[in-house]
Computed example of a mutant assay.
Amino acid sequence: MAQLSYSKFLWNSVNLHGVHSPFVFGITRALNTKTMLYPKTATETLDRKTIDILFRILVNLHKERLVILGDDATAVVDLLRNYGEELKLKLWFFSTFAPISGNLDLIYISASDTAPILPQIETLMPSIGSNTVCAIGNIHSSAQAEYDWETIKKDPRVTVSIDTYHLGLIFFRPEQAKEHFMIRTTTSKVLDFALGAKNLWGLLY
Protein backbone atom coordinates (compact mmCIF):
# COMPACT_ATOMS: atom_id res chain seq x y z
CA MET A 1 0.00 0.00 0.00
CA ALA A 2 1.43 3.36 -1.01
CA GLN A 3 1.29 6.13 1.58
CA LEU A 4 -1.28 8.83 0.94
CA SER A 5 0.41 12.10 0.04
CA TYR A 6 -0.99 15.35 1.40
CA SER A 7 -1.64 16.66 -2.12
CA LYS A 8 -3.63 13.54 -2.99
CA PHE A 9 -5.55 13.90 0.26
CA LEU A 10 -6.46 17.50 -0.59
CA TRP A 11 -7.57 16.48 -4.07
CA ASN A 12 -10.04 13.98 -2.62
CA SER A 13 -11.13 16.02 0.40
CA VAL A 14 -14.21 18.16 0.98
CA ASN A 15 -15.05 21.19 3.10
CA LEU A 16 -18.31 22.29 4.74
CA HIS A 17 -20.08 22.50 1.39
CA GLY A 18 -19.36 18.85 0.62
CA VAL A 19 -20.86 17.43 3.82
CA HIS A 20 -24.57 16.55 3.95
CA SER A 21 -24.75 14.74 7.30
CA PRO A 22 -25.92 17.24 10.00
CA PHE A 23 -23.71 15.57 12.61
CA VAL A 24 -20.59 15.57 10.42
CA PHE A 25 -21.37 19.12 9.26
CA GLY A 26 -21.15 20.23 12.91
CA ILE A 27 -17.83 18.43 13.33
CA THR A 28 -16.49 19.92 10.09
CA ARG A 29 -17.49 23.43 11.13
CA ALA A 30 -15.65 22.94 14.44
CA LEU A 31 -12.55 21.69 12.61
CA ASN A 32 -12.59 24.72 10.31
CA THR A 33 -13.13 27.33 13.04
CA LYS A 34 -9.79 28.62 14.25
CA THR A 35 -9.22 28.85 17.98
CA MET A 36 -6.99 31.15 19.96
CA LEU A 37 -3.30 30.43 19.60
CA TYR A 38 -2.19 27.65 21.85
CA PRO A 39 0.48 28.30 24.51
CA LYS A 40 4.02 29.16 23.51
CA THR A 41 5.05 26.29 25.78
CA ALA A 42 4.01 23.90 22.98
CA THR A 43 6.74 21.34 22.53
CA GLU A 44 8.33 21.10 19.11
CA THR A 45 8.36 17.31 19.38
CA LEU A 46 4.62 17.24 18.67
CA ASP A 47 3.09 17.84 15.27
CA ARG A 48 1.66 21.35 15.51
CA LYS A 49 -1.16 20.68 13.05
CA THR A 50 -2.29 17.70 15.11
CA ILE A 51 -2.28 19.79 18.29
CA ASP A 52 -4.14 22.59 16.51
CA ILE A 53 -6.91 20.18 15.48
CA LEU A 54 -7.15 18.82 19.03
CA PHE A 55 -7.51 22.38 20.35
CA ARG A 56 -10.29 23.10 17.85
CA ILE A 57 -12.12 19.98 19.01
CA LEU A 58 -11.75 20.93 22.68
CA VAL A 59 -12.88 24.54 22.29
CA ASN A 60 -15.41 24.40 19.45
CA LEU A 61 -17.09 21.14 20.51
CA HIS A 62 -16.81 21.88 24.25
CA LYS A 63 -15.01 18.67 25.21
CA GLU A 64 -13.93 18.37 28.86
CA ARG A 65 -13.60 14.68 29.84
CA LEU A 66 -10.44 13.31 28.23
CA VAL A 67 -8.29 10.22 28.01
CA ILE A 68 -4.88 10.61 26.34
CA LEU A 69 -2.90 7.49 25.40
CA GLY A 70 0.17 6.68 23.34
CA ASP A 71 3.86 7.40 22.98
CA ASP A 72 3.47 11.16 23.45
CA ALA A 73 0.68 11.03 26.06
CA THR A 74 2.59 12.89 28.77
CA ALA A 75 3.55 15.75 26.45
CA VAL A 76 0.00 16.05 25.09
CA VAL A 77 -1.55 16.08 28.58
CA ASP A 78 0.87 18.78 29.73
CA LEU A 79 0.15 20.86 26.64
CA LEU A 80 -3.62 20.57 26.92
CA ARG A 81 -3.52 21.26 30.64
CA ASN A 82 -1.48 24.44 30.08
CA TYR A 83 -3.86 25.47 27.30
CA GLY A 84 -6.88 24.83 29.49
CA GLU A 85 -5.46 26.94 32.29
CA GLU A 86 -4.73 29.85 29.95
CA LEU A 87 -8.27 29.81 28.54
CA LYS A 88 -9.89 28.85 31.85
CA LEU A 89 -11.24 25.61 30.42
CA LYS A 90 -12.39 22.86 32.75
CA LEU A 91 -10.51 19.82 31.53
CA TRP A 92 -10.68 16.48 33.33
CA PHE A 93 -8.06 13.84 32.51
CA PHE A 94 -8.97 10.23 33.20
CA SER A 95 -6.78 7.13 33.36
CA THR A 96 -7.45 3.64 32.06
CA PHE A 97 -6.08 2.33 35.36
CA ALA A 98 -9.19 3.44 37.25
CA PRO A 99 -12.94 3.03 36.57
CA ILE A 100 -14.43 5.87 34.52
CA SER A 101 -17.91 7.04 35.44
CA GLY A 102 -19.99 8.36 32.53
CA ASN A 103 -19.02 8.93 28.92
CA LEU A 104 -15.74 10.45 27.76
CA ASP A 105 -15.76 13.48 25.47
CA LEU A 106 -12.41 12.94 23.75
CA ILE A 107 -10.03 10.02 23.45
CA TYR A 108 -6.69 10.68 21.79
CA ILE A 109 -4.42 7.75 20.92
CA SER A 110 -1.13 8.10 19.11
CA ALA A 111 1.60 5.51 18.72
CA SER A 112 4.38 4.59 16.34
CA ASP A 113 3.11 1.02 16.67
CA THR A 114 -0.57 1.31 15.76
CA ALA A 115 -1.51 -2.32 16.39
CA PRO A 116 -2.59 -1.77 20.05
CA ILE A 117 -5.06 0.99 19.14
CA LEU A 118 -8.12 -1.24 18.66
CA PRO A 119 -7.50 -3.12 21.96
CA GLN A 120 -7.16 0.24 23.73
CA ILE A 121 -10.46 1.43 22.24
CA GLU A 122 -12.04 -1.89 23.24
CA THR A 123 -11.04 -1.27 26.86
CA LEU A 124 -12.69 2.16 26.76
CA MET A 125 -15.92 1.07 25.02
CA PRO A 126 -18.04 1.25 28.22
CA SER A 127 -17.16 4.97 28.41
CA ILE A 128 -17.73 5.78 24.73
CA GLY A 129 -21.02 7.41 23.75
CA SER A 130 -22.51 8.68 20.50
CA ASN A 131 -20.76 12.05 20.83
CA THR A 132 -17.37 10.78 22.01
CA VAL A 133 -14.59 11.85 19.64
CA CYS A 134 -11.93 9.16 19.22
CA ALA A 135 -8.90 10.81 17.63
CA ILE A 136 -6.07 8.67 16.26
CA GLY A 137 -2.69 10.16 15.41
CA ASN A 138 -0.12 9.20 12.78
CA ILE A 139 -2.64 7.50 10.48
CA HIS A 140 -0.56 8.32 7.37
CA SER A 141 2.90 8.06 8.91
CA SER A 142 3.62 4.68 7.28
CA ALA A 143 2.03 2.01 5.11
CA GLN A 144 1.37 -0.07 8.25
CA ALA A 145 -0.31 2.88 9.98
CA GLU A 146 -2.57 3.36 6.95
CA TYR A 147 -3.42 -0.36 6.95
CA ASP A 148 -4.34 -0.17 10.64
CA TRP A 149 -6.44 2.96 10.00
CA GLU A 150 -8.36 1.10 7.28
CA THR A 151 -8.90 -1.79 9.70
CA ILE A 152 -10.26 0.56 12.36
CA LYS A 153 -12.63 2.20 9.85
CA LYS A 154 -14.01 -1.21 8.87
CA ASP A 155 -14.89 -2.16 12.44
CA PRO A 156 -18.69 -2.69 12.28
CA ARG A 157 -19.20 -0.57 15.41
CA VAL A 158 -17.52 2.46 13.81
CA THR A 159 -20.27 4.29 11.95
CA VAL A 160 -18.57 7.62 11.16
CA SER A 161 -14.90 8.08 10.29
CA ILE A 162 -13.20 11.32 9.30
CA ASP A 163 -9.73 11.56 7.80
CA THR A 164 -8.19 15.00 8.36
CA TYR A 165 -4.81 13.64 7.21
CA HIS A 166 -3.13 14.70 10.44
CA LEU A 167 -5.70 12.90 12.60
CA GLY A 168 -8.26 10.19 12.08
CA LEU A 169 -11.55 10.69 13.91
CA ILE A 170 -13.98 7.86 14.58
CA PHE A 171 -17.43 7.82 16.15
CA PHE A 172 -19.59 5.02 17.47
CA ARG A 173 -23.11 6.16 16.60
CA PRO A 174 -25.47 3.18 16.17
CA GLU A 175 -28.24 5.58 15.15
CA GLN A 176 -26.28 6.68 12.06
CA ALA A 177 -25.45 4.94 8.77
CA LYS A 178 -21.81 4.07 8.16
CA GLU A 179 -19.98 6.84 6.28
CA HIS A 180 -16.39 7.92 5.71
CA PHE A 181 -15.21 11.47 4.99
CA MET A 182 -11.95 13.12 3.99
CA ILE A 183 -12.17 16.65 5.39
CA ARG A 184 -9.59 19.39 5.05
CA THR A 185 -9.06 21.70 8.01
CA THR A 186 -7.07 24.24 6.01
CA THR A 187 -9.20 27.07 4.66
CA SER A 188 -8.15 28.80 1.47
CA LYS A 189 -10.35 30.58 -1.08
CA VAL A 190 -8.03 29.56 -3.92
CA LEU A 191 -7.94 25.92 -2.78
CA ASP A 192 -11.69 25.79 -2.18
CA PHE A 193 -12.35 27.28 -5.62
CA ALA A 194 -10.00 24.85 -7.37
CA LEU A 195 -11.38 21.78 -5.62
CA GLY A 196 -14.95 23.03 -6.00
CA ALA A 197 -14.40 23.40 -9.74
CA LYS A 198 -12.97 19.86 -9.83
CA ASN A 199 -16.07 18.48 -8.09
CA LEU A 200 -18.40 20.44 -10.38
CA TRP A 201 -16.57 19.12 -13.43
CA GLY A 202 -17.07 15.60 -12.07
CA LEU A 203 -20.80 16.16 -11.70
CA LEU A 204 -21.10 17.51 -15.23
CA TYR A 205 -19.02 14.79 -16.84
Rank of each mutant, 00 (worst) to 15 (best):
L195E: 01
K90A: 12
T151I: 09
R81V: 00
S161N: 06
A145M: 01
Y38E: 05
K153M: 12
L31D: 05
A2R: 15
P174M: 02
A42W: 09
W149K: 14
R48T: 03
H140N: 13
K154V: 02
P119L: 08
G168E: 03
I117C: 01
L46I: 10
L58A: 09
I128F: 10
M36C: 04
T43H: 15
V160W: 09
D78K: 12
K90M: 09
P39Q: 04
A197Q: 02
V133R: 10
V158M: 06
D78E: 12
M125H: 08
E86P: 04
V14Y: 07
T35P: 05
E146S: 06
I139Y: 05
S7E: 15
R48I: 03
F55M: 14
V67Y: 05
L69E: 02
V67P: 14
P99T: 07
L104P: 04
I139K: 09
L124A: 04
L104Q: 03
S110K: 08
S7M: 13
T187K: 14
R48N: 01
K40M: 13
W11H: 05
E64M: 13
K198R: 12
S141Q: 15
D113E: 13
R184Y: 06
V190P: 01
N131F: 09
N199A: 15
I152A: 05
D52P: 00
K178C: 06
R81A: 11
G129I: 06
P126L: 07
K8F: 11
L80V: 04
L167W: 02
G137E: 06
D47N: 15
F93P: 02
I162M: 03
Y38T: 01
S161F: 03
V14K: 14
T41K: 14
E86I: 02
F25W: 13
A75Q: 09
L118V: 14
D148V: 05
N12Y: 11
H140A: 13
L31R: 05
R157V: 08
L54C: 03
A143Q: 11
L79R: 00
R65G: 00
D148P: 00
K34Y: 11
P126D: 07
A75M: 14
P156Q: 11
Q3V: 10
H17K: 10
V160Y: 10
T43P: 14
N60T: 01
F97L: 14
L80Y: 00
P156I: 11
T96L: 12
I152H: 06
F9G: 00
G70H: 11
L87E: 07
N32C: 03
E179A: 12
Y38H: 05
I68Q: 01
G129D: 03
V19F: 11
T164G: 01
N199F: 13
